[in-house]
Amino acid sequence: MSEVLSWVFAILFVLVVIAWYLSYTAARVDRLHVRLSGTLAALDARLVRRAEASVELANSGLLDGATSLILANAAAESLEAPSEHGEARELAENDLTEALDLALTPEAVSSLRSTELGEDVLARLASACMRVQLARRFHNDAVTDVRRVRRKWTIRMFHLAGHTPMPHTVEFNDESPEHLAAV
């Protein structure tokens, strides 16, 4: 009888350890998904701030009319792009980066630096561009972590991620114009 009880306790112990491991792993996957949501929200906020700083530069009257129009249109498209990250959002952000490259030539930057308003607008834009780069990197690191953890066989076998779709990295050109970096 004692041998049967020891087997029952051993089996119960193993089941409790397995249940604890699965519960711990599910909580870890959930925490990673929460972190991922936070990094995506931060990236969205930084993209909006970059677009707003671009609109501010376009409306400052410090750039020529054509350049201001191109920059304002690209920033408006970025602000109006769908909030979910996909091809349309990435194209809008690429267009804004290209418009910033076009607007911020060395001559334009030196001209902007000659005024207090221009210096202020450039500083805000440089800060916004740098924060976009950091936010996108943090988000893509979080995506990599989630994907790495979700590839484990226990998570797939026991469906510990539920029906949450596999996240994807956000890919667009977020490089600051090289002349802006010197601000």
Rank of each mutant, 00 (worst) to 15 (best):
T164F: 00
A161P: 00
A92V: 05
V149P: 00
F158T: 11
D120F: 09
E84V: 13
D145A: 15
L160K: 12
I70C: 02
N73H: 09
E93D: 12
L69K: 11
S37V: 03
A42N: 12
A19I: 04
V170T: 13
I155L: 02
R49K: 14
R31A: 08
G86A: 05
S127M: 10
F158A: 10
L43K: 07
N140S: 07
M130C: 11
T39L: 00
I70L: 09
A108W: 06
Y21W: 02
E56S: 14
S78V: 03
S37I: 03
R124I: 08
Y21E: 04
E3M: 08
R151F: 00
E87L: 03
L117Y: 07
P167Q: 11
W20R: 05
V109M: 06
A72Q: 11
A66N: 10
L125Y: 09
L104E: 05
D141C: 04
S23L: 08
E90N: 14
S114E: 06
R151Q: 04
L40Y: 07
A41D: 08
L32D: 11
R28V: 09
E90C: 06
A161C: 03
E93Q: 15
V149Y: 01
L69E: 08
H33M: 04
S111P: 00
A26F: 01
V149H: 05
L125R: 15
P177F: 05
V4T: 15
